[in-house]
Amino acid sequence: MSQMGRPKKDDPMIHKVSVRFTESEYQRLKAYAEKINKTMTEALKDGIELLYKDYQK
């Protein structure tokens, strides 16, 4: 019998991070994410990637 359910991902998201923002920081992130048509999580991940690339120089 074959396995049921969703297929396993190659790189599953197993870590969860919680961040607290001030109201103004939250509004800035929300506005930016809406402007680039991404979720706030995707916008944060993009920012982390930019910081990491700059760090590697």
Rank of each mutant, 00 (worst) to 15 (best):
M1D: 13
M1S: 08
S2D: 10
S2V: 14
Q3M: 12
Q3C: 06
Q3A: 11
Q3F: 09
R6P: 02
R6E: 14
R6M: 05
P7S: 00
K8H: 13
K8M: 02
K8S: 09
K9H: 07
K9I: 00
K9V: 06
K9Y: 14
K9P: 07
D10L: 15
D10K: 10
D10W: 09
D11I: 09
D11R: 15
P12W: 13
M13K: 12
I14S: 01
H15E: 07
K16T: 12
K16R: 15
K16I: 09
V19D: 08
V19A: 15
R20H: 15
R20M: 14
R20S: 15
F21H: 14
F21W: 15
F21N: 04
T22R: 04
T22P: 06
T22M: 00
S24N: 09
E25P: 01
E25K: 13
E25M: 06
E25Y: 04
Y26K: 09
Y26D: 06
Y26P: 00
Q27Y: 10
Q27L: 13
Q27F: 06
R28W: 03
R28F: 06
R28G: 01
L29E: 01
K30V: 05
A31P: 02
A31F: 11
A33I: 02
E34W: 03
E34K: 11
E34D: 14
E34T: 07
K35Y: 11
K35A: 07
K35R: 15
K38C: 02
T39P: 02
M40F: 06
M40K: 09
M40L: 07
M40Y: 01
T41W: 00
T41K: 05
T41H: 04
E42D: 13
E42M: 03
A43F: 01
A43V: 02
L44T: 03
L44N: 03
L44F: 11
K45D: 07
K45W: 04
K45Y: 13
D46V: 01
D46K: 02
G47M: 09
I48T: 11
I48G: 00
I48R: 05
I48V: 14
E49A: 09
E49L: 12
E49W: 12
L50A: 01
L51Q: 04
Y52R: 08
K53P: 00
D54T: 08
D54E: 13
Y55C: 07
Y55L: 04
Y55Q: 12
Q56T: 08
K57I: 08
K57N: 09
K57F: 12
